[in-house]
Nucleic acid binder design. Structure first.
Lengths: 125, 125
DNA sequence: CTTGACTCTCACACCGGTGTGAGAGTTCGA
DNA sequence: TCGAACTCTCACACCGGTGTGAGAGTCAAG
């Protein structure tokens, strides 16, 4: 599919799809006329990129992490030791972030629960 | 304590501490000479802010969420309905993010596990 | 009193992710 | 064949978080 369709299906502006390509996150083929040609699988990939970006990871980090996230298709061979070390760091930060966010989530949840209890639980759960 | 000490103890530049104040995340007192005076408890608070920022939350969001994170001291009375609605939204986004980040964490973790298994587990766990 | 470390405010600048427009080429249906 | 809609590249601009510097005030130690 071309960039417009991918944009429509992912809700991500063409501008950004080009940007992600520039950052090495996407590698669409090219038609004879120069148009980008996107594989079906890239729909999911774009969603993943968006998720990771929203979670505070940089495109640089995502470029490192993304190859590992293609459902179980680990291509371990081409993993340079430096890449692995970086990945270990990212993993630790990911763990930290999940913990921090989980705590925040629980705190906010507890607060909302308390408010509902006190105000007669008017809010739709 | 003054801004320099807080910066030293949190590893956060004075510039940023002022910025967080400007964004309504911190409200230090002022000495007679105009210097900011930080309460001991703000050390922890600054760390929390940093974590949330690193997790992709905006200062605006953090400003909404932060009051609920001060260990159980819910001041429910002054909760305007709009604030609560906003908080509900933030909560849902928090849940989403935790899920997204958890997936990424697990994927990276699985990858690292696979690599260790194949390369003789040289990495220090 | 002087000096140096610290603080204040203000302002410009960087970077990364994103928006937007210009100008030119391609595709496709009316 | 014409025009609308799409694509391309390039470039400037915005915004949020951050760095950095200028110019001035505060304060403690020598």
């Amino acid at each position: 599919m071309r960039i417009g369709e991918l944009a429509a299906r992912t809700g991500v502006a063409p501008r950004l799809l080009r940007y992600y390509e520039e950052q090495g996150l996407l590698k669409p083929g090219r038609s004879a006329n120069g148009y980008r040609e996107y594989d079906e699988a890239l729909v999911e990939r774009v969603r993943q990129i968006r998720s990771l970006l929203a979670s505070g990871l940089s495109t640089r980090t995502i470029r490192t992490v993304l190859p590992c996230l293609l459902d179980g298709q680990f291509h371990v061979r081409d993993a340079a030791p430096q890449t692995l070390a970086a990945l270990e760091r990212e993993y630790r930060q990911l763990v930290e972030r999940v913990e921090c966010l989980s705590r925040s989530r629980d705190a906010v949840g507890a607060y909302l629960g308390a408010v509902r209890a006190l105000t007669g639980a008017g809010a739709g759960a």
